[in-house]
Amino acid sequence: MKKLNYLYEDGNHKWAVIARDPDKADYLIDTNEYLVMDGAEAMLTDPGGIEIFPAVFAAISAEFDPARITRLFASHQDPDIISSLALWLDYKPELRCYLSWLWGSFVPHFGGDDQTFISIPDEGMDIPLGGLTLRAVPAHYLHSSGNFQLYDAKARILFSGDVGAALPPPEEDMLFVRDFDRHIRHARGFHQRWMGSNEAKLDWCERAAAMDIDMMCPQHGSIYTGADVGRFINWFAELPVGTGVSRKAA
C-alpha cells in the first residue's frame, strides 16, 4: 500500500511524498509522487500512471483533503508521470496541469483539453502556490527533450523528476539515501541509458550546484539529503551518459 510521509513542515507550508508500494506488481516501476502544500492550495508532482491511481488517491486522502489539490505538475510526458491525468480530471475537472509546451499536444492523449494545461516555456517559469513562488527549472534531455524540475527555494527542496532516479532491489529500497556509494550503483545504469546528452547534463549540474538544496527528490528511488545532494551532482557530472547501448547492439 502506498503511504503519505511528510518531508518538510513549516506551518502551513509542507512537502509530502507518496512513496513505495510493496503491493504493486513487479512489472510496474515504483514511483514517488510529491504533494506541495501552502495554505489552502496544493500541487501534486508527477501524479503517476493510471494503474496506480487508486493507491495514490487513497494514500493522499488518508492524510489530506484531495479537493485542495488545485494543480498538477508533469515533469515530462511519460506514462509513469501523467497517464492518470484523465482519472484526476474525472475527480476534479477544474484541475490545471503545468507541462512543457513541447508536450502540449501529446499529453492530451492521456486526457484533458485546451483548458487543462499551463504551458511552461523552455526557460522555465515561476509557479505561484498559496503564498509561495515555486520555480519550474529546465532539465531538458534529462531524459525527456521537454523536461522540468520543481524548485521550492523556501523549503530548499528540488523535485528532480527522473534525474537522481534509482532502481534498487527491494531490500535496499529506502525512503532516504543512507549510504551514497551503495545507493548510486543502482542509479548508474538508469542514467547512462535514459539520459541522452552530456552537454545538457553538464549545464544542469552547473545550475544545480549553484542552488540551495537540502533535499533532492527524484520520481523513482530514494531521496538525497544534505551532502548527498552535492555528491550526486558531482557523480552525475562525471558520468558519461548516452552510453547505455553497447556498440554491438547499435
Partner: peptide, 20 residues
C-alpha cells in the same frame, strides 16, 4: 473506521478506473 474507509476509497478509485 480508518482502515475501513481507506479500503473503501481504494475500491471506489479502482471502480472509477475500470469505468473509464
Amino acid at each position: 473506521l480508518n482502515t475501513r474507509i481507506f479500503r473503501l476509497l481504494m475500491q471506489v478509485a479502482e471502480l472509477k478506473k475500470r469505468e473509464r
